[in-house]
Design a protein around this nucleic acid. Structure first.
Lengths: 358, 358
DNA sequence: CGATTGGCCTTAATCGATTAAGGAGGTGTC
DNA sequence: GACACCTCCTTAATCGATTAAGGCCAATCG
């Protein structure tokens, strides 16, 4: 008798359909559909009766059925390497909000890291009917997938990283220039023994950042402390490991240019643990300006990347494609900003020669 | 003639269907479906021919059609307040990976913050066919929505926050006890003028944390410095504002217990800017142990919350429901850990009476 | 007054898969 | 020879919406 009992009785997901509304109002289901879509040719009286009944019954359209019929699901896929890396949440936030403003929602896939491979995840998203994809973590190995998507005419954009071999819409910052500026600053402030601890070379972004730093060093007639440290992961752990290896090697270092702020965090962990003073002994510069970089006592010098905006612009470009734009791939370069804080302050000690005795 | 030309010619999303495979192999589409699903009753010969043709044509099943017919989309919805708040990405990562292990993918909805209202977002996810929902940021105002979901028998779980009035599966930590422990530590180390800068009282988690801290103070015969500061947002900005207000008020303070690490970050920003020494003048304790809390020079005392695990357990409980478990709501309390670092070190100065002249 | 015109609905096909029910052809049994 | 019984397919309904095409009726026109 009660609503509770009814609720318990129906099987899960038993939802009101247009057909039921049609039966109650006494019209055909087509009319109900027309009423909801505002299609002309439904009298105001009937429309009102339909809407009233729908409301009473708590009708909600089945988006799956709509999607099947209309061939468009109004959703986009977002692929990222590791949502726990603080770079991505803000980018994602931009993507989600911009998509929402376009009436779409976002399907999230985490690739690598216990998740699926990128290609598998991307195909899955397409199978589910995503109208387009935003790639934030492509690597060169994804070439085949991207080719496949282009062949099938599935819209996608690169946010941040890109694959050179597959031209497509791309939103990014000038990583090369930004990294060069950061390294230049370090060099100009008198550091001579500069180490570069970068990200994976298969990522275009990390690659560009490393090249930028090396270009600055080269222009000053310097070369990096230990070339083998350049390539690695963009994680705090990897920063720790490589910084420890660097200090252990006994090489003289008075500055470390990091591929991102997470690496810088790991580097600072090790320096802190070993009593290496920042910036007195070693200057440190990160990349991305993650929220913690400006934290009270931390004050990491870094490069600001407009991550939220990057997500928003990526979605804007993607919707252009989804809505039919068919021109050549476009590239949008967002402004970055060198943010000098305390970790690149004046150098007061001689080149450090800590032997990593900590 | 070329594959390129064919590709350009077909309209977007023109994908191979079972029907086309059936026509080529010379069987009915039903047989094709049976072949893919491993349903008995298809000869090995025919099955092989079907699979071969499917592979050649790059067939992929349309998950939307499958979902419509099967009534299950194999996806879950994840609702969160602000993906840029570092609490959520790690929780999300746990959710995504656990869902992936169950063969499901995750739909993400950001509520508030330029996104939709929670109820709107949740209904949207259900309309799209999500098999269940994970709520991470419910507030008391969502009661009606939750009731509606229960009436429709839509499975959902609370991760972290909960709404008392609507019992449902819930994964959390003992925020009350953890916060009490944190405050006790501060009190035991000799601080007498303790301020509590918490989160929104409409969040069960913030509410419990605030109660825990107050309980510790009460047990020591103390009361918080300024009760009006307890309620606010869980953001760095809010931490800044309230800390500034606190210092401006001229009240004597020698410890600040924060509702989470973001607030603590804002508090540290202000202290740093005004020359208030941590921990000499003011001890600070956060909550959540976000990655930056342990950063080199930062060393924020806080409480560790197993966020990734929380996401995984939430999904496990959710899938129990999706798979038919129909018992009473279950509650899972995960272990927390008080993490004492440098910001709660010994107090060396008298109670601060900075007038905020910075 | 018969024909045309519009307004308002209905019929039925369709999206791409799943699946119950049924049929054709061969084998086995008595 | 008849009947049951497999094995392997096919037919057709179905999920819940959308939408082209067509029907009915009253109003309008020459």
């Amino acid at each position: 008798m009660t609503a509770e009992r009814d609720g318990a009785k129906r099987s899960r997901g038993r939802r009101v359909t247009q057909r039921e509304i049609a039966d109650i109002v006494g019209v055909s289901s087509a009319t109900v559909s027309y009423a909801f879509n505002g299609t002309p040719g439904v009298s105001e009286d009937v429309r009102q009766r339909i809407l009233t009944v729908a409301k009473d019954l708590g009708f909600r359209p089945n988006r799956t059925a709509q999607g099947l019929r209309r061939g468009r699901m109004n959703m986009i896929g977002l692929l990222l390497a590791d949502i726990a890396n603080p770079f991505y949440p803000e980018l994602s936030s931009g993507v989600i909000n911009a998509a929402s403003a376009h009436g779409s929602q976002v399907f999230l896939a985490q690739v690598g890291l216990g998740g699926m491979l990128q290609a598998e995840a991307a195909r899955n998203l397409v199978d589910r009917g995503c109208d387009g994809l935003v790639f934030t973590s492509v690597v060169d190995g994804d070439t085949e997938l991207l080719r496949e998507l282009q062949a099938a005419d599935t819209p996608f954009v690169y946010a941040n990283r890109r694959v050179d071999a597959i031209p497509a819409d791309w939103v990014h910052v000038d990583d090369f220039a930004a990294s060069r500026e950061a390294a230049e600053w370090v060099v100009r402030s008198g550091r001579l023994q500069v180490a570069v601890i970068g990200g994976p070379s298969e990522s275009s972004v990390s690659h560009d950042r490393a090249r930028g730093a090396l270009a600055a060093l080269g222009a000053a007639g310097l070369s990096p402390v230990d070339e083998r440290l350049i390539d690695g992961e963009l994680s705090r752990d990897s920063g720790r490991e490589r910084c420890a290896a660097l200090l252990d090697s006994g090489a003289a270092v008075d500055a470390i240019v990091c591929g991102n702020d997470m690496i810088a965090l790991g580097v600072m962990d090790v320096c802190h643990a070993r009593g290496v003073l920042i910036p007195e002994d070693v200057a440190i510069v990160g990349f991305d300006d993650m929220s913690f970089a400006s934290a009270g006592p931390l004050q990491l010098s870094t490069v600001t990347v407009p991550r939220q905006l990057m997500g928003e612009r990526a979605v804007a470009m993607l919707f252009d494609r989804i809505d039919g734009y068919d021109g050549p791939p476009r590239e949008e370069c967002l402004p970055h900003q060198l943010r000098i804080r305390a970790t690149t302050g004046p150098r007061t000690a001689g080149p450090t020669d800590q032997r990593g005795t900590a």
